[in-house]
Write a protein that binds this DNA or RNA. Structure first.
Length: 1046
RNA sequence: GGGCCCAUAGCUCAACCGGUUAGAGCACCUGACUUAUAAUCGGGAGGUUUCGGGUUCGAUCCCCGAUGGGCCCA
């Protein structure tokens, strides 16, 4: 019996596991990186440049959700890749700690315990609450593998940060664009505070009253419309439509669009109803009229200057022209209460109307109400409770066009925190003027809005320039410009005050006697110093030294601080986070106020990017960032936002559908099939039916199916069960510029891609067999190896460019592509020399030197994306000169120049064509062999009894048994292939290949001679011992090394 | 209702300026191998580029409109 030569073959050998077991092992790497000070060591490396990245602070409340995790993964890709490319990049994580959600949590807890808490104590509790969540989120963010200064993050509640916020505010004051004014703001009567734009949410299905209300025109006004009346009409009323009857007591005017067409509609009892022509029919319908009889139409400008009588107050509501009036819904005449609406306010401002808002902090009417409303007993009444009272009253006055009690379901603003409906209410607040010239030296009297807009454009222009250099700067993607521009263009003045406790106080003071309010740079300078030492809590202490001894009033007189009271408002948290570049980066000589990159979700065009831009423009005179990169949102496979509540809603929807179909008589299978359930495998259906048979309620079974079908996979579950690396692989597998699909199926695809890379690395590590490999310079490279290195060079160039443009997907896809190509071609073709050549054979040395270089380079390239696995590879990569203890200490890999690189690429391109032709020809043969083998197995006989005929009738079991002749080749084409026929044959896994210009097609026959017992190749040179000379030599070498001849 | 964006194979993504027959991978079907084996290699099928118009010699790409979806606002 022949010797089993398997042990003499140098088969792959490595301790690098096929299975990552990442979830178990990641914490070990994290611990190691921390204990060896990896982050500091990365930064300590000598580099040519530096890159300033600035973390946008997540809110320190609750656990991290998918969006946060994605965002953190992308940020880590940035930090790690810039460091890899030789730009020293720090990552200082931060948290947004002040603000309403935390305060409300603490408040709720205090109320539950019926405690009366002082502001100072309240703030202390809020600080504890914020600290608690910072700790939770820090653990979660670190677990993802994000590298950074986790022990010294920046917190907006830190003393130094608070002081810098005051200094940022100082810059606005110095620019003379901070003012106090009464303006309508979005107000939450429950939380008793004004809300920022970003704090407002919208309820989709809010139910409001819907009333059409008549304002009878005075005699003069009616006379002006005399020739517009339809027959049978003798008097006219303007008709408005509103969903907020509670604002009627504050009505001061009616708005029409000057360019819109209006008509008088004949109402009941000969009353004329003034409405927009386009809406006459719908108003008639609402009023219960059988038909819409109208007079001649006329432009709205003809109405300007007329007036209607308020239904229950003794005053007139003048009609004004306004562009915001629309003809899409309502009546085309808009009820205007300048104290309760933004457009209303603007219109009132233009015509000298007060922002009249007789509603208090708590949403109850105040004594400012008119006599008519007071007579109704509305004073002290909660406004939403007043709606039906008002409606009833208006109906009794005959002022309503429709029957009372009509409702409308529409989208309505609600408080982000308590979810109660918001109201618009004029209050006294601190504002930053968007359109006042900035007066500080160096700001050239440009308004904040103008400066912000010009900065947006400057960034865009710079981005376009950078693009031609293959770098990403400015707005990335470029439509970010359009988006933020629209917002800055149309935004109102910035309301920066909030009537809450947990935040940075607005350090203004009010003179107790005169009522004068003071907010000066002098005052702010003093307070900033105090906050820097003692924190903003000082504002809430009794200590008088928080204020300067003497405070300068507007007339220049200095008054003692005892005469002043401190402003109880705090600053909008968006102002704080918008100042983060100033608080975190500006003071560090290593960083500076100009940040290279901000990276957040596209919602931050209104949030952090926006507030940072405004603060930057008033503090620095320019945008604080050079590039703004945005990502989309995590969605399910239908493109819907991926959140726990959304998924639960869809699960219930699905359950209901299942229940409805089954109770409707449909069989479970067909119901599921009709619903295209991916879940409905026969086994599962059978199981479900069994459960139904056991009298489990249909509801429960259906819900179980739905929950299985539409699965909610929290990020911590992926991380705990599969590893953070796989979440990172997902993040890089989908396109973050758009919405990112997230589901079990997509995750599995990302995991498969990851495995592909991992296995390719594993094979090459196996080829190295845990032994140091020769360096490239120490071997004579085979053409195939030179080709692999040329390909590596191409991949490195692509990946470097991609990293510079934050196209992480491209990096991963390119590496994955290389792995596929190496696996199918290069590695497959190298197996023979790796396994069967003698250990020190030049061909084999060439291969392992190349593979060592490939592994090392690929691990380094993917390290920013897959830091754990890259480190795993590095750990298993045999030592070489200059090898550091972590892949993350590496710089961007290089490849030696390959002289005949271009020729090799051309060759491989040609060989690709040859390959396609050969495999296509061989396929039916191999296929037939497979069929024969299975038939033989079934019949219980040896395969091959019926010979597979091909070409010269010799059987071909495997491609390596085939000797192929392929043509036609022009001599010129053949000349572009710089490899020999034997080399090409090996590359394709063929026994032999002859590229013959003269032949007109592909021909294959069985390679001649018996196969070598060891390497199984038919080369026609097998000796009497059953081995080819190459294997004979290899076995001799092996035996000599083993010291024992067989 | 408004601003910005997205739509290519069952899924995730490609396709330089408008230019040959729209490409990969996964999944699917199928074969090989047992010397990468919870691995690897070969082959196959799969597209009216969401729909409707327009510009052009030529449109996935440019323009207009519709539909569906997202973010932000009202």
């Amino acid at each position: 019996m022949a010797r089993d030569y398997k042990e003499t073959c140098l088969l792959p050998k490595t301790a690098f596991a096929m299975k990552g077991d990442l979830f178990k092992r990641e914490p070990q790497w994290l611990a190691r990186w921390e204990s060896t000070g990896l982050y500091e060591r990365i930064l300590a490396r000598p580099t040519g440049g530096r890159f300033v990245f600035h973390d946008g602070p997540p809110y320190a409340n609750g656990h991290m959700h998918h969006g946060h995790v994605l965002n953190n993964a992308l940020k880590d890709f940035v930090t790690r890749s810039r460091n890899l490319l030789g730009e020293r990049t720090r990552f200082i994580p931060g948290w947004d700690c002040h603000g309403l959600p935390i305060e409300l949590n603490v408040d709720r807890e205090a109320k539950r315990k019926k405690e009366n808490v002082s502001p100072a104590e309240m703030r202390a509790r809020c600080r504890d609450e914020a600290t608690k969540w910072v700790d939770v989120q820090r653990t979660e963010r670190k677990r993802l593998g994000v590298l950074g200064t986790w022990e010294t993050p920046y917190l907006t509640m830190n003393k130094g940060f608070e002081a810098q916020v005051i200094r940022a505010l100082r810059a606005f004051v110095a620019n003379e664009i901070v003012y106090r004014g009464k303006k309508p703001v979005q107000w939450c009567w429950h939380c008793r505070t004004a809300l920022a734009e970003a704090e407002v949410e919208y309820a989709e299905q809010h139910v409001s009253p819907s009333i059409y209300l008549k304002f009878p025109l005075d005699a003069v006004s009616a006379a002006a419309l005399r020739d517009k009346l339809p027959p049978g009409v003798d008097r006219v009323a303007a008709v408005i439509w509103t969903t907020t009857p509670w604002t009627i007591p504050a009505n001061l005017a009616i708005a029409v669009h000057p360019a819109l067409d209006y008509v008088v509609l004949r109402g009941a009892d000969g009353e004329g109803l003034l409405v927009a022509a386009a809406l006459a029919a719908s108003v008639a319908k609402a009023a219960g009229l059988d038909e819409a009889v109208v007079g001649p139409s006329f432009k709205g400008e003809g109405l300007v200057g007329l007036q209607g009588r308020h239904p229950f107050e003794s005053r007139w509501s003048p009609i004004y022209g306004a562009d915001h009036v629309e003809s899409g819904a309502g009546t085309g005449l808009v009820h205007t209460a300048p104290g309760h609406g933004r457009d209303d306010y603007k219109l009132g401002l233009a015509h000298g109307l007060e922002p009249y808002a007789p509603v208090g902090d708590d949403g109850r009417y105040t004594g400012e109400l008119g006599d008519g409303a007071k007579a109704l007993g509305l004073e002290g009444q909660f406004i939403f409770d007043a709606n039906p009272i008002l409606e009833q009253h208006l109906a009794s006055l005959g002022a309503l066009l429709q029957k009372p009690g009509q409702k409308i379901t529409h989208k309505y603003p609600i408080c982000w925190r308590c979810k109660n409906p918001l109201i618009t209410r004029a209050t006294t607040q601190w504002f930053i003027a968007m359109d006042e010239p900035m007066k500080a030296p160096g700001f050239f009297n440009v308004t904040l809005r103008e400066r912000a807009l010009s900065e947006i454009d400057r960034l865009a222009a710079d981005g376009a320039r950078a693009e031609t250099e293959g770098v990403a700067r400015g707005w990335v993607p470029s439509w970010g410009r359009e988006r933020i521009r629209g917002m800055i263009e149309s935004r109102p003045d910035w309301c920066i005050s909030r009537q809450r406790i947990w935040g940075v106080p607005i350090p203004a003071v009010q003179h107790k006697a005169t009522g004068e309010v003071v907010l000066t740079t002098e005052l702010l300078d003093h307070v900033a110093k105090v906050f820097a030492e003692r924190g903003a809590d000082a504002w809430y202490s009794d200590d008088p030294t928080v204020l300067p001894e003497l405070i300068r009033c507007a007339d220049g007189t200095l008054r003692p601080r005892e005469e002043f009271a401190r402003d109880p408002s705090i600053i909008d948290v968006w102002f704080e986070s918008g100042s983060s570049f100033y608080a975190v980066c500006e003071p560090e000589p290593d960083l500076g106020a100009k940040v290279d990159l901000y990276l957040e979700g596209s919602d931050q065009h209104r949030g952090w990017f926006h507030s940072s831009l405004l603060v930057g423009c008033a503090v620095l005179g320019e945008a604080p960032y050079r590039a703004v990169l945005t990502h989309g949102f995590v969605c399910d496979e239908h493109g819907r936002p991926y959140s726990k509540s959304e998924i639960r809603r869809r699960q219930e929807e699905r359950r209901n559908e299942i229940v409805a179909r089954v109770t409707g008589g449909e069989a479970l299978e067909s119901a599921l099939a009709a619903m295209r359930s991916s879940w409905a495998t026969p086994e599962k259906v059978a199981d479900a039916k069994k459960r139904l048979g056991k009298k489990t309620a249909l509801d429960d079974v259906a819900l179980a199916i739905a929950q299985d079908d539409i699965e909610y996979i929290p990020p911590e579950k992926i991380i705990a069960e599969q590893g953070a690396e796989l979440f990172r692989a997902w993040a890089v597998f989908v396109d973050y510029e758009n919405d990112m699909p997230y589901s079990r199926a997509v995750l599995n695809q990302a995991i498969d891609a990851y495995r592909r890379v991992r296995n390719t690395m594993r094979f090459m590590l196996g080829a190295l067999r845990d032994e140091p490999a020769p360096l490239l310079a120490e071997v004579t490279l085979e053409p195939l190896d030179r080709w692999a290195l040329v390909r590596l060079g191409e991949v490195l160039a692509t990946c470097e460019a991609a990293y510079r443009q934050y196209r992480f997907r491209t990096v991963f896809a390119t590496v994955l592509d290389l792995c596929q190509e190496l696996s199918a071609l290069y590695l497959d073709a190298s197996k023979d020399r790796l396994y069967n050549d003698a250990a020190d054979a030049p061909r084999r040395r060439s291969a392992i030197a190349t593979m060592q270089h490939l592994v090392r380079s690929i691990a380094t390239v993917v390290a920013p994306i897959l830091p754990f696995s890259a480190e795993d590879v590095w750990d298993h990569l045999p030592a070489f000169a200059g090898k550091g203890d972590s892949v993350h200490l590496e710089f961007w890999p290089t490849v030696p120049a390959i002289d005949d690189g271009a020729a090799l690429l051309t060759s491989m391109q040609q060989i690709g064509l040859v390959r396609d032709a050969v495999f296509a020809q061989l396929e039916p043969v191999v296929q037939a062999w497979g069929v024969e083998k299975q038939a033989a197995k079934k019949a219980g006989r040896e395969p091959g009894a019926g010979e597979i005929a091909f070409a010269d009738s010799a059987r071909i079991d495997h491609a390596r048994d085939a000797a192929v002749t392929i043509g036609p080749f022009a001599e010129a084409e053949r000349a572009t292939i710089t490899l020999t026929d034997a080399q090409v044959a090996e590359l394709l896994g063929l026994g032999a290949l002859h590229l013959a210009p003269a032949v007109t097609n592909v021909g294959a026959r069985r390679a001649s001679g018996p196969p070598c017992d060891r390497c199984w190749r038919r080369r026609g040179d097998v000796g009497a011992d059953g081995l080819c000379p190459r294997c004979r030599h290899a076995v001799d070498v092996f035996d000599r090394a083993a010291g024992a001849p067989a």
